[in-house]
Computed example of a mutant assay.
Amino acid sequence: MKPDLLHTTRHLVQVLAFCLVISALQYLFHPERPYEVPLVYSLSIGLCTWFITDMGRFVVGMDPMTSWPRGWRGPALVAFGMVTGYTGGTLLSDYWFGWSTWHSAASGDLRGSVIVTVVAGVVISSYFYLQGKSMTLQRRMKVAESQATEAQLRLLLTQLEPHMLFNTLANLRVLVGIDPARAQHMLDHLIAYLRATLSASRATEHGLQAEFDRLRDYLALMEVRMGPRLSYTLTLPDALRQASVPPLLLQPLVENSIRHGLEPKVEGGHITVEAQSLPGADGAPALLQITVSDTGVGLRSDAPAPPAMPHQTPHQTPDLGRGFGLTQVRERLRTLYGPQASLSLQHGPGGGTVVLLRYALQALPESPTTHRLADTADHA
């Protein structure tokens, strides 16, 4: 493993801080002596010990988990660094002041100096050891969180696709015999939907445009199945086309609106999906707000309400949904965007349900893709 200049510099700065603290403590115990003496000795011994120990890690070989040599080599390197660092640092300081510590210093002072060096060496080495281990664990946790998010996406796909696919194929079977043109139209949307699904399953994020494209294909399929009982509006401002969004974030919400809102209602209803940017509070980054609303039967008044997510505004009803899709959306938001992200459900002003998603607005790099959705699309 090669030396990391940033980590090495950070270790050097931290060692200098430790040396200054040690010299200040020594001066407090012996204020009759000039501060320059403990300062020079502390810096000389500390820097020599740091150089030998820190550079020795790269010579002996480090454990990727802790950034320290494995087994007995770690303590042996620390002991060697303390002995040689103390000896070299003391000789340098003696040369600076023009005296000999071993001949002119009292035996008690010499013994105290050795004890201070040993204690400081053990404490500082332990600090760096634990720091390296902690940083490694944090990196592994980030990797594990990323893998867990991908696993959640795969699991979500396995839950969403069969239910929708079987219903679509059953409708296709009926339409082929009675309305071939309508069946062809439905099959075209199914192919586009499956193609988008395959693309989404290979990415951890994509543009909001791609997410809306997928919703359009899904809603077009549902529109063929439900007929005039389903209408929808997708509103995506041009400035938000390349806003970053995790794949499959919105489809569970739209599917919930259809399954629990519109299908139980005889006359069906309308679904609206709208994206907009909001200014962040107190200079914070701008927020992306996505609203999924329907005019269905609305929320059950007797449903138990779980605790609200952080940063939930007072007018919002705590999330009443405990289904698989809503749980996955909530967990993915928390994993990817932290406590600043929020998901909430509330009663619609004229009935139905409104779902609000908010998280920090992030843009994807521009790519020369062809957009096939209009900024605002209405279907009745």
Score class of each variant (00 low, 15 high):
Cys48Arg: 14
Val329Gly: 04
Asp188Leu: 07
Pro310Cys: 07
Gln138Ile: 09
Ser100Ile: 02
Met62Gly: 00
His347Leu: 05
Gly85Ile: 11
Ala24Arg: 03
Leu198Lys: 11
Gln147Val: 06
Ser126Asn: 14
Gly112Tyr: 01
Glu211Asp: 06
Tyr95Met: 06
Thr101Pro: 04
His163Glu: 15
Leu364Cys: 15
Ala105Ile: 08
Arg73Gly: 04
Leu356Cys: 05
Pro349His: 15
Leu172Trp: 08
Arg154His: 11
Val13Cys: 06
Leu12Asn: 00
His189Arg: 15
Met55Asn: 13
Ser277Asn: 01
Leu345Ala: 10
Leu287Gln: 14
Pro279Gly: 01
Ser126Leu: 12
Val355Ile: 15
Ser44His: 15
Asn167Gly: 12
Leu16Arg: 00
Leu250Asp: 05
Gln289Ser: 09
Lys2Tyr: 03
Gly46Asp: 14
Asn167Ala: 13
Leu357Thr: 09
Val292Asp: 03
Gly98Pro: 02
Gly350Ser: 15
Thr291Arg: 10
Phe29Tyr: 10
Ser44Ile: 13
Leu248Ile: 06
His103Pro: 04
Leu364Met: 15
Ala17Lys: 02
Ile45Asn: 08
Asp282Lys: 11
Leu160His: 09
Leu155Ser: 11
Arg259Gln: 12
Leu25Arg: 01
Phe97Leu: 05
Ile191Tyr: 15
Thr101Asp: 02
Gly112Trp: 05
Ser257Cys: 10
Leu5Cys: 01
Thr136Ser: 12
Val118Gln: 00
Gly132Gln: 06
Leu43Cys: 07
Asp294Ala: 03
Gln131Gly: 05
Gly108Pro: 01
Lys142Val: 11
Asp375Phe: 03
Thr149Lys: 06
Ala341Lys: 09
Phe128Cys: 07
Arg241Val: 02
Thr117Pro: 00
Ala105Arg: 07
Pro246Trp: 05
Arg225His: 06
Pro38Gly: 11
Tyr27Gly: 03
Gly261Ile: 03
Thr272Tyr: 04
Cys19Ala: 12
Thr353Ile: 05
Glu145Trp: 00
Leu175His: 06
Ala120Lys: 11
Glu205Phe: 03
Leu248Asn: 08
Ile115His: 03
Ala303Trp: 09
Ser344Tyr: 08
Phe324Asp: 07
Arg214Phe: 14
Leu215Met: 10
Gly352Asp: 14
Val60Glu: 05
Tyr95Trp: 10
Asn167Lys: 12
Pro162Tyr: 09
Ala286Asp: 13
Thr313Ser: 15
Gln26Ile: 00
Arg182Pro: 04
Ser231Gly: 15
Arg330Ile: 00
Tyr359Met: 06
Arg300Ala: 14
Ser93Cys: 01
His7Tyr: 00
Asp375Lys: 08
Thr90Ile: 13
Ala281Phe: 00
Arg139Ser: 13
Leu47Trp: 04
Met309Cys: 01
Arg241Trp: 04
Ala76Pro: 00
